[in-house]
Structure formats: structure tokens, C-alpha cells
């Protein structure tokens, strides 16, 4: 038995008939063909599938697509605007915050959501914020640096300000 759902993915509505058991991550990857969101575990442990749901970072492997019906999802493919990398993407590049690239989209989406409501975060706060996302390559050092870079760029004092 399938159900018709519509999810706003990166600003565009995607409508499909889906089984209720279809995981959101499979909807994103296989129905909407956005393969930047990855799968690294089955137990909500690794965060490779992290996306932003109505402004909050969630693990799309632990959510059914039907639960996101009518809601807004942002994936890594939605970070670039007007051909410009988002500061978090810039940060990961400038600070060498990625190696194999597999955890990177999830890591960036978690960081993106975190920086929406945190400014000038401490090292400890950043590490805490990404503690639901596993990286096997970088030892996290440069991921933290990348987030600090984006934090500084996103929350720079306004020109002429204090």
C-alpha cells in the first residue's frame, strides 16, 4: 500500500507515491535522486545521512518519508546559492575538513543547522554539536576549524560596526 506525499526538498516540491516504510534517506537518494546524502550505519549512530528538517538537523535514516510529508528538507545539494559555496562549504575546503568526503555532507548539514542559531561558538560547543556525526578520516581537528571558519564568516560584525 502506497501513499502520496510531497516533500519540499531544497526549495522544490517533490511528490511521489511511496510505501510508508520508505526511509527518508531512500526517498532523498532514490526517489529524488539526490545522492549527496549518504548512509553509513543502521542504528542512528553515524550521521552520514544528516539533513535539515524544518531548520533542525536530523538523521534521515531514522525517519520515514511519510513523516516528512508537507515539510521542508534541506540537503547538501541545497547549500550552494547563486553558484556560490556556502561559508560552511568554503570552511571545509579552506581548512581541509574532509578527506574521503563520505561523512562530509552530513557533517556540513549538522554544522549548518548549528550555526543558524549559534555564533562565536567555543571549541567545546562545536565538538558537542557534531558528536552525533562520525568521521573516520580527519580526527575532527580540521572539521572543527572549518566550522570556526564558517562561524566567523557568517557572524562577522556588520561593516562599520563595533
Amino acid at each position: 500500500m502506497t501513499q502520496k506525499i510531497t516533500i519540499n526538498l531544497n526549495g522544490a516540491d517533490v511528490t511521489a507515491e511511496v510505501e510508508p516504510r520508505l526511509l527518508l534517506v531512500h526517498f532523498i537518494r532514490e526517489v529524488a535522486n539526490l545522492t549527496g546524502t549518504h548512509i553509513g550505519c543502521d542504528t542512528t549512530s553515524c550521521g552520514a545521512c544528516s539533513v535539515v528538517l524544518d531548520g533542525k538537523a536530523v538523521k534521515s535514516c531514522t525517519l520515514f518519508a511519510v513523516q516528512a510529508d508537507g515539510r521542508r528538507i534541506m540537503t547538501v545539494e541545497g547549500l550552494v546559492t547563486g553558484g556560490q559555496l556556502h561559508p560552511i562549504q568554503e570552511g571545509f575546503h579552506e581548512k581541509h575538513g574532509l578527506q574521503c568526503g563520505f561523512c562530509t555532507p552530513g557533517m556540513m548539514m549538522t554544522s549548518y543547522a548549528f550555526l543558524q542559531n549559534h555564533a562565536h561558538a567555543s571549541e567545546e560547543e562545536i565538538r558537542w554539536a557534531i558528536s552525533g556525526n562520525l568521521c573516520r578520516c580527519t580526527g575532527y581537528v580540521n572539521i572543527v576549524e572549518a566550522i570556526k571558519y564558517a562561524d566567523a564568516k557568517l557572524h562577522a560584525p556588520a561593516a562599520g560596526g563595533a
Binding site: 539526490l34 547538501v76 547549500l79 559555496l85 575546503h93 581541509h96 574532509l98 562530509t104
Partner: peptide, 17 residues
């Protein structure tokens, strides 16, 4: 800075799955 980053940062890596 790494050349390969361009695709990974945009979710355009091409992994097996």
C-alpha cells in the same frame, strides 16, 4: 587546497551506492 573537494562539497561525489 584539494582539487577533489569541489565535488564532495557539493554532494556530487560518485560513491558505489
Amino acid at each position: 587546497k584539494r582539487k577533489e573537494d569541489a565535488r564532495f562539497l557539493r554532494g556530487r561525489g560518485n560513491y558505489i551506492d
